[in-house]
Computed example of a mutant assay.
Amino acid sequence: MLDLRWMNGAPFIHRGGYSNHRSSPDLVELFEYVAAVAPDSYGLLHVHDDEQPGHENDVRVLARCLDWPGHEESGTALDQGPARGQTALHEISRHGHQGADREPAMSASLPFFRYHPDPLASGSIRAASETCACCKGNRGWIYTATFYTAQDVSGRLCPWCIADGSAAERFAGEFTDSYGLDGVSEEVLHEVTRRTPGFHAWQDPHWLVHCQDAAAFVGEVGYTELAEHPEALDQLRADMRTAGWHDESQLEHFLANLGEGASAMLFRCTVCGAYLAYADAS
C-alpha cells in the first residue's frame, strides 16, 4: 500500500504492506529518496525482514528526524541525528520475539492511551532526543501538541509523564480543553484532559463524545478517508446544517474539499465502534 496525500498543509507518505518476500526496490531506499528530495522531512519506519540472517524475528525502528530552528534534536541516543539535508535514516531500536537481550537505543514501548491510541500516526508524539521538562529524562520520544498551563514550562514533555498524570499535576495544566466532553464521568474527563496526548489542529482541538464516553481520536483526515466511514460523514453533514450551513451546494463543496485548507478530525466510539468527526479550518 502506498498513499500520498496532503494533510494540514503538508504532504504525507504512508507505505505499508505484508509481502512474502523482500520488495523491490527496497523500502528503506524509498524513504531515503524522500529524505533526499525533501530535506526537511521526518518520520518513522518499522521494518520486519524475516529474510535478514540473524534477525529473522526482529522489528527495526528507523527514524528520520528534523532539526527545527532553535532546537537540536535527533533520532539517535547519541545526539548525532541527521543534520538538515542529510538523507540517512537512523536505527533507533531493534526488538523482536527472541531479541530481549538487545538494548534499544530508544524506548520503543510507548504508553497506551485509550482515547488517543496512535499518537505517532497523528504526529502528537515523535522520535526525538530531548529532555522531558517534567521528569528530566531522555527516553527518545517527545510530545509535540497542545498543553494549557499558566506556568512557564521550559521544554516539552515525554509520553510517560503524560500517561501517569505527573506532567499535568506538576504544571497544573491540561492537554485538552474540557469543551465538548459533556455527559462523561469525572474519571473520563480527567483521563482525557490530563492523561491523554492532545492533537494538532487549526482551531483549539476538542474531544467528541459517543455512548456517554469520550471517543478515541483517530487522526486528521480529508474527504477520501472520511467517506470510508459514511456514518461519520453523515453526522458531520448534519452537525454543519445545525450550525447554519443551509446552502446544500456550499456544504457539499466544503465537504468534498476537506484536506485542502480544511480537514476533519476523526474519532471512533470506544463503546460501539461508530466513527464520528468534526471539521477544522484555518
Rank of each mutant, 00 (worst) to 15 (best):
Leu2Pro: 07
Asp3Glu: 07
Asp3Cys: 07
Gly9Cys: 03
Ala10Glu: 14
Phe12Val: 13
His14Tyr: 15
Gly17Ile: 01
His21Gly: 12
Asp26Trp: 01
Leu30Glu: 09
Glu32Cys: 04
Val34Tyr: 13
Val34Gln: 13
Ala36Tyr: 10
Val37Glu: 05
Pro39Ile: 03
Pro39Ala: 06
Pro39Gln: 02
Tyr42His: 15
His48Trp: 14
Asp49Cys: 00
Gln52Trp: 15
Gln52Cys: 03
Gln52Glu: 14
Gln52Thr: 09
Pro53Tyr: 05
Gly54Gln: 13
Glu56Trp: 13
Glu56His: 13
Asn57Asp: 14
Leu62Cys: 01
Cys65Leu: 07
Gly70Gln: 12
His71Gly: 07
Glu72Ala: 11
Glu73Arg: 13
Thr76Glu: 10
Gln80Met: 12
Pro82Leu: 15
Ala83Ile: 00
Ala88Gln: 14
His90Glu: 08
Glu91Gly: 07
Ser93Leu: 13
Ser93Glu: 15
Gly96Glu: 06
Gly96Asp: 03
His97Val: 05
Gln98Ser: 08
Ala100Ile: 04
Asp101Ile: 07
Glu103Val: 14
Glu103Ser: 05
Met106Ile: 04
Ala108Thr: 08
Arg114Ile: 00
Pro117Val: 04
Leu120Val: 04
Ser124Thr: 01
Ile125Asn: 06
Ala127Gly: 01
Ala128Leu: 03
Cys134Gly: 06
Lys136Ser: 15
Lys136Ile: 00
Gly137Met: 15
Asn138Tyr: 01
Arg139Ala: 11
Gly140Met: 09
Thr144Ala: 12
Ala145Asn: 10
Thr146Ser: 11
Leu157Ile: 12
Trp160Lys: 05
Asp164Val: 06
Gly165Asp: 08
Ala167Cys: 00
Phe171Lys: 05
Gly173Trp: 02
Glu174Cys: 11
Glu174Ala: 10
Thr176Val: 08
Gly180Phe: 08
Val184Pro: 00
Glu186Arg: 12
Glu191Trp: 08
Glu191Ile: 05
Arg195Pro: 05
Thr196Ala: 00
Pro197Met: 05
Pro205Trp: 13
Trp207Met: 09
Val209Ile: 11
His210Arg: 12
Gln212Tyr: 10
Gln212Val: 06
Asp213Val: 03
Phe217Leu: 12
Glu220Gln: 14
Gly222His: 04
Gly222Ala: 04
Tyr223Trp: 15
Ala227Asn: 12
Ala227Pro: 00
Glu228Thr: 09
Asp234His: 11
Arg237His: 08
Ala238Asn: 10
Thr242Tyr: 14
His246Trp: 12
Glu248Gln: 04
Glu248Asp: 11
Gln250Tyr: 06
Phe254Gly: 01
Leu258Pro: 03
Ala262Gln: 11
Leu266Glu: 01
Val271Thr: 11
Cys272Ser: 09
Tyr275Cys: 06
Tyr275Val: 02
Ala279Leu: 09
Ala279Gln: 11
Asp280Met: 09
